[in-house]
Simulated scan of single mutants.
Amino acid sequence: MDITLLFEHLLNGLQFGLMLFLLAAGLTLVFGIMDFINLAHGSLYMTGAYFAATFTSFTGSFWIGLLLAIAATAVVGVVLEMSVLRRLYRRDHMSHVLATFALILIFNETARIIWGAQPLMLNTPPLLSQPVELLPGFFYSSFRLFIIATGLAVAALLYLIVVKTRLGMLVRAGASNREMATAMGVNIKRVFTLLFAFGAALCAVAGALLGSILAVQVGMGESILIPAFVVIVIGGIGSIRGALVGALLVGVVDTLSRTLLPTMLRAIMPPDIASNLGPALASILIYVLMAAVLFFKPQGLFPARG
C-alpha cells in the first residue's frame, strides 16, 4: 500500500477515534461516576446532529448552528435528567437499561415526527471546505483536521476541569463516596445534573461534526453507541484518560482493518471471497481488541479506581 494512503487512513482513524472520545467521555462520566447505564446517550448525539442541521439552516452559519445545538442539547439533557433519569438512580442496572431503551424509541419517533424520515444534510463551513496540503502532493480534508483539533482540545479541557477545578473535585468526591460527599454539604443532585448536561453537550459537538461527514438521520445514535461502550470498557469505566486512549485504539484499529484486511486477504484467497470476508473480519476486530484487553486487565487500561 502507498505510504500516503496509509497516512491518510491513520488520520481518518485518529479523527474517528476522537469523535468516539467525545461520546465516550460523557458516557464514562455518567456510567463511572453516577453509576448509571444510559443507553439513550446515542439519542442525544442524534438530537445534537438534528439541532445543528436545523439551526444551521435557519441562521445560514455553521458556527452559530453548532453553538445553538450545543446549548439546546444540554437543555434537553437537563430536562431528561431531572424529569426521568433522577428517579432511576437508586434502582438496579436492569431498570436503567429498560428505561433508557424506551427513551431510544421515544427519541427516534419524535425525530421522525419533527424532521421526517428522510436524512438531512449538514454542510461543512466554507472556511473548512478546501483540502490542506500536509505533505508534498498529499492533501487532506481541512474539516477532518478541525475535528481532530477539536477532539484534542476537548480532551485537554476535560482534564483541566476534572483535575484542576472545584467542580472536578466535587465530581470526584461524589464518585468516591456519594453519601459522605452529601454529608459534607455537596449538592450531589446539582453536580449530577451539570455532569449530565456536559455529557449531552459533548454529544452535540460529536453529532454536529460527524453529521457534516455522514447523513443526519433517525437511528444514527444506535450505530455509534456500541463502539462508545467498547471504548469505555477498554479504557476503564469512569476514566477520562482511559476513554481517550481507548477511543484512539478503537478508531485506528477499526479504520485500518477495514482498509488493510481485504487487501491482505486478496493475496492468499480468491478476490470475491476476500471482498466478503475482509469487511466481516474487520467489523469484529474491535471486539477482539476489547476481549484481549479485558483478559490481561479486567478493569480496563486505566481504571478510575485502583
Score class of each variant (00 low, 15 high):
Asp2Gln: 15
Leu5Cys: 11
Phe7Glu: 13
Gly13Ile: 02
Phe16Glu: 04
Leu18Glu: 04
Leu22Tyr: 01
Ala25Arg: 00
Gly26Ser: 06
Leu27Ala: 05
Leu27Val: 10
Thr28Lys: 11
Asp35Lys: 15
Ile37Asp: 03
Asn38Cys: 04
Gly42Trp: 01
Tyr45Thr: 00
Met46Lys: 03
Ala52Pro: 01
Ala53Arg: 03
Phe58Asn: 04
Phe58Ser: 14
Phe62Thr: 06
Ile64Ser: 14
Gly65Met: 15
Leu68Lys: 07
Ala69Gln: 02
Ala71Met: 07
Ala72Tyr: 13
Glu81Trp: 03
Met82Val: 13
Asp92Tyr: 08
Met94Glu: 14
His96Thr: 08
His96Glu: 06
Ala99Phe: 10
Trp115Glu: 05
Gly116Asp: 10
Leu120Ala: 07
Leu122Ser: 01
Val132Met: 13
Val132Trp: 11
Glu133Gln: 12
Leu134Pro: 11
Leu135Tyr: 10
Pro136Cys: 13
Phe138Thr: 14
Ser142Glu: 06
Arg144His: 02
Arg144Ile: 05
Ala153Phe: 13
Leu158Ala: 12
Ile161Ser: 13
Ala183Val: 15
Gly185Tyr: 06
Asn187Ser: 14
Val191Pro: 02
Cys203His: 02
Val205Ala: 08
Gly207Val: 01
Leu210Ile: 06
Ala215Asp: 12
Ser223Asp: 10
Pro227Gly: 02
Val230Ile: 09
Ile237Leu: 15
Gly242Tyr: 11
Leu248Ile: 15
Leu249Cys: 15
Gly251Leu: 04
Gly251Gln: 12
Leu256Trp: 07
Leu261Cys: 05
Pro271Met: 09
Ala280Pro: 09
Ala280Arg: 09
Ser283Phe: 08
Ser283Gly: 12
Leu285Ser: 05
Met290Thr: 00
Phe295Pro: 03
Ala304Ile: 04
Ala304Asn: 12
